[in-house]
């Protein structure tokens, strides 16, 4: 069926994803690289307190300045981004695999499989996510990156399930699927070779929104002091630092840089998702 897939409508070939998409992709990649390579880059130690340089503005020595304890803000933001990025990407990836496979199966099979998986996803989605995570954390001490990843994946999987199920449904009765079935193709082949390639654009576009949402949720938790424990810096708790006591009036840079980081990262993710959606003509699916 490779021919069918290759024969995309001319409109798709006409214009590419656009410069914006590639700039955003480059930005996100750069941020990931910085976070991964943070320990080998020539950065200051994120928790080193230099009392001779407290609350200094951006300078050649401290590119983004220092906070009220004399810690280098550039290092803190980059090291802090690690938590956000891990919680942004890993749970969504897990959710994409688990929810995606379940969604494909439910959308294609229909019947009892669909009814059952659908009910499970409804129940999981009925819980307000942030509240559930906060409450479970309280009772399930101590908070760790692994636990957060698992909890976020539990939130992400049913959402991605619903999107992928709806998209699969819209393809499951199309001619090429019926043809493949008539030719005696196995279910696994139909799912992976016929349906999956058609679902990837919608899934990726929605997953990018998911990454942005997860980063916001983790940031909110960190802002409330309910994410990874101090002294590990994370973007949310740096912002919280910057808002506490008189920091906001004395040195707005502390809150400014991590806020700017989050704003740019989210904008890039949202723009990429938007471009993908219009490029592949993904319809807004009814959830």
């Amino acid at each position: 069926m490779a021919e069918t897939l290759g024969a995309t409508p001319a409109t798709r070939r006409g214009k590419g994803l656009g410069v914006t998409f590639w700039i955003c992709l480059a930005w996100v990649t750069l941020m990931i690289l910085l976070a991964v390579l943070a320990s080998v880059l020539p950065l200051k130690a994120p928790n080193f307190q230099d009392y001779s340089a407290v609350n200094v503005g951006p300078s050649a020595h401290h590119l983004l300045g220092t906070d009220d304890l004399g810690r280098d803000l550039l290092a803190r933001v980059i090291f802090g981004s690690r938590v956000s990025l891990v919680i942004g990407f890993f749970p969504i990836a897990i959710g994409l695999v688990v929810g995606g496979l379940a969604g494909l199966l439910a959308g294609y099979r229909a019947g009892p499989t669909d009814t059952m998986l659908n009910a499970v996803s409804f129940v999981l989605l009925a819980f307000p996510a942030l509240l559930a995570i906060m409450v479970i954390e309280t009772f399930w001490k101590p908070v760790s990156l692994l636990k957060l990843t698992v909890m976020f994946a539990f939130v992400a999987a049913p959402l991605l399930f619903r999107v992928i199920r709806a998209t699969t449904l819209s393809f499951a009765s199309r001619e090429f699927v019926v043809a493949a079935r008539a030719m005696g193709a196995k279910t696994s082949r139909i799912l992976l070779r016929e349906l999956l390639p058609n679902i990837v654009p919608a899934a990726v576009s929605f997953a990018l929104i998911g990454v942005a949402t997860a980063i916001v949720l983790e940031g909110s938790l960190a802002f409330l002091g309910l994410s990874i424990n101090l002294p590990t810096s994370s973007l949310g708790n740096i912002i919280n630092d910057g808002v506490n006591s008189n920091n906001l009036s004395l040195n707005p840079y502390i809150a400014l840089w991590p806020s700017l980081y989050i704003f740019l990262l989210l904008t890039a993710l949202n723009l990429m998702a938007d471009r993908l959606r219009s490029y592949f003509d993904v319809r807004e699916v009814k959830l």
Binding site: S220, F223, G236, I239, G242, I262, F263, T267, N270, L271
Partner: peptide, 15 residues
Amino acid sequence: TFGMLSLPTFVAGPL
């Protein structure tokens, strides 16, 4: 509004 979409409350609030 696209920009506002990227302003979570813990960023917009302090601002």
